[in-house]
Simulated assay, not measured.
Amino acid sequence: METQKSVLVLSPRADLVPRAQHITGVMGEMGLKMDVLSPENTLLGSLEQPRSLRLLTNLKAVNILLKSVMFFWLLIEYVVRGYNKNPDIIYCPHIGLLPAAGLLSLISRSILIYDVIEKYAEEYWSSKTLTKAILSIESTFLPFVDIIFVIDSKDDVILKRYKNRAPIVETIYNVPRKKKLKKYNQSPSLIYVGNLEEVKGVKKLIPAFAKVVNSYPKAEMTIVGPSFDSIREEMIATAEKKGIRQSVTFIDKIPYDEVHGHLLEADIGLAPYQNVRMNRISRFNSRKIFDYMNAGLPIIGPNFGGIGEAIEQLECGLTVDTGNETELADGMRQLLSDPDEAQKLGNNGRQLIVEKYNWKTEKEKVKTAVSNTV
């Protein structure tokens, strides 16, 4: 009797991001046994930091040193614990864990799948020196990789970067599973879903929306997603200062499966990406664009880069200068003032999800790649 082959997922967090959930789900459907290593199920994750050490970490230098030591400890734990699991396949969806995945694949003779989820070379870190160092480490361990999955990008920039770096290199779109469509109504409701980060333009939303509320006093905005610094507090303070706090709802991080329900309650999806290189090369890798389309929402997005081109080509929304609060507000007013046009744009996006941009096609690409190496 043939032994069931196993997949070990090296994850930087306990809950896998939606893309990783979809890809590992495909491998599970192929009859592969799934196991996940995350910081929470390591010895490091189970240790409680002493109060005296917590006080010391308030010092920036100590904090950086401690995080560096913890990170290298974590990599060692991943290799040791992973080796004991004796996996047939290793799935690594994060550049920071690639050294552990590469070493583990070497000593356990496992197939290594590296999923390039982010645009790491495009200003992803504030320090150019750090970026170069991490990309150099990535280059060192790429020879151990058997399959590379990459996100979509304008002019296939990312696909070209990794082409010929592994036997199999495949673009996997960040598309959702097709879900139920909302019943369109004319309630003036806008929504943003995603991390609260400055490069994603969230700090522009409140000032822009304040201009809209003057014309549409019943309009509401919902902002869903985690904040990793003080951005949420700053946005709340701005909303209070503008006198629109009661019109804006903030929801912290929620499970991905719950996102669609919130989208069904809205009328317009917001994607105010700012004009930086990492956003200029983005295209269909932006999950929020597809999620908005899946719910039949017209999109307000940037008038630059691959995302802007995609929105215009697919005729699923408006593109504006997202760095300009007045233009962002004008886009909101335009869709709120013309619900028929808004519905038409939303329907266009939804139809494309039904016909083309859904997980069914990408699922087959994952299955083919994995089948050719197992």
Rank of each mutant, 00 (worst) to 15 (best):
M1R: 03
V9F: 00
L10A: 05
P12N: 13
R19K: 08
I23F: 07
T24V: 14
V26N: 06
G28W: 12
G31F: 13
L32A: 00
L37E: 12
N41C: 12
S46N: 09
R51Q: 15
S52Q: 08
L55R: 05
V62Y: 14
S68I: 04
M70S: 08
M70W: 01
F72P: 00
L75K: 02
G82W: 08
Y83H: 10
N84E: 13
K85M: 15
H94I: 01
A100P: 14
G102W: 08
L104A: 05
S110V: 11
S110P: 12
I113V: 15
Y120S: 00
T129P: 06
P143V: 15
D155Q: 04
L159P: 13
K182E: 12
L190Y: 03
I191M: 09
V193K: 12
N195D: 04
G201S: 05
V202R: 00
P207T: 14
P217Q: 14
K218V: 11
E220K: 10
I223P: 10
G225T: 12
S230L: 13
S230D: 15
I231N: 04
V248G: 05
T249K: 08
Q274H: 05
R287E: 06
F290K: 03
Y292A: 04
Y292G: 07
A295L: 05
A295H: 04
G296A: 06
G296T: 03
I300P: 01
G306A: 10
I311L: 09
E312Y: 07
L314H: 07
G323C: 14
L328Q: 11
D330K: 03
D330Y: 00
R333W: 08
L335P: 06
P339V: 12
D340E: 13
A342D: 07
G349Q: 11
V354A: 00
N358M: 04
K363N: 07
E364L: 09
E364T: 13
K365M: 11
K367G: 01
A369W: 09
